[in-house]
């Protein structure tokens, strides 16, 4: 565990807390893509199947359970909670996310570390996580205006990915045998998807104005 990895995990946790806070405080999920949240729930459920087979550390197990529970809680809020559900605009959230699931699974069947159940689901979760933010980014671009908390949620999520890249560079330099191409290449693709968002986020921050994405 290095400082980049820890900072990455913490910003990831922070992004989820910001999202839960937004939903809890405003009793609304406007601007939040249910499809992205469902994809994250699938990502965590598929990746942390090893909860039952491998023990790495208390920290690792605890965080896995937090990520699974929080992602399911968010999906539950948007789908079931009567007030939150009402604020969900499904006409804006039209990304065909099942295509991402199908493509990621197909890719995992061909590109994986080992042909085992756990490894295929691990690779699937890595590929799906790389593209899971797409419905959210498309929704934000469509609606144009981004409220503060939703903007911060995406910002922290992007920061988490950036820090994980620094973590891999650090590990590559300090651990001679660190070469895990599936995670690293997917991670770079995932981070690149945030580039556009970050550009507008920093412009609005610099000008001290509301975050607006061009249509």
């Amino acid at each position: 565990m290095n400082i980049f990895r820890l900072a990455g995990d913490m910003t990831h946790l922070l992004s989820i807390l910001v999202l839960l806070l937004k939903i809890y405080a405003t009793k609304s999920c406007s601007g939040v893509s249910r499809k992205t949240q469902e994809l994250y729930a699938i990502v965590f459920l598929a990746r942390y199947l090893d909860l039952f087979t491998d023990f790495i550390s208390v920290y690792n197990t605890f965080m896995k359970i937090v990520f699974i529970a929080s992602s399911l809680a968010i999906v539950w809020c948007i789908r079931v909670h009567p007030m939150v559900k009402r604020s969900y605009d499904k006409d804006l959230d039209t990304f065909r996310h099942y295509l991402l699931v199908a493509a990621s699974f197909l890719l995992a069947l061909f590109l994986h570390e080992k042909f085992t159940f756990l490894e295929i689901f691990w690779a699937f979760s890595i590929y799906l996580e790389a593209v899971a933010i797409l419905p959210q980014l498309v929704l934000l671009q469509r609606s144009g205006n981004v409220d503060n908390l939703t903007g911060q949620y995406v910002f922290f999520l992007g920061a988490y990915r950036g820090l994980y890249i620094l973590n891999w560079i650090y590990r590559y330099l300090t651990e001679p045998r660190f070469t895990r191409w599936i995670a690293c290449v997917s991670g770079v693709v995932q981070t690149a998807l945030y580039a556009d968002f970050f550009y507008y986020y920093f412009i609005s921050w610099k000008n001290n104005s509301k975050l607006k994405l061009p249509a």
Binding site: S57, R177, F178
Partner: peptide
């Protein structure tokens, strides 16, 4: 855990 393992990451 293996030094070259990313499975310890979240």
């Amino acid at each position: 855990t293996n030094k070259d393992d990313v499975h310890d990451e979240l």
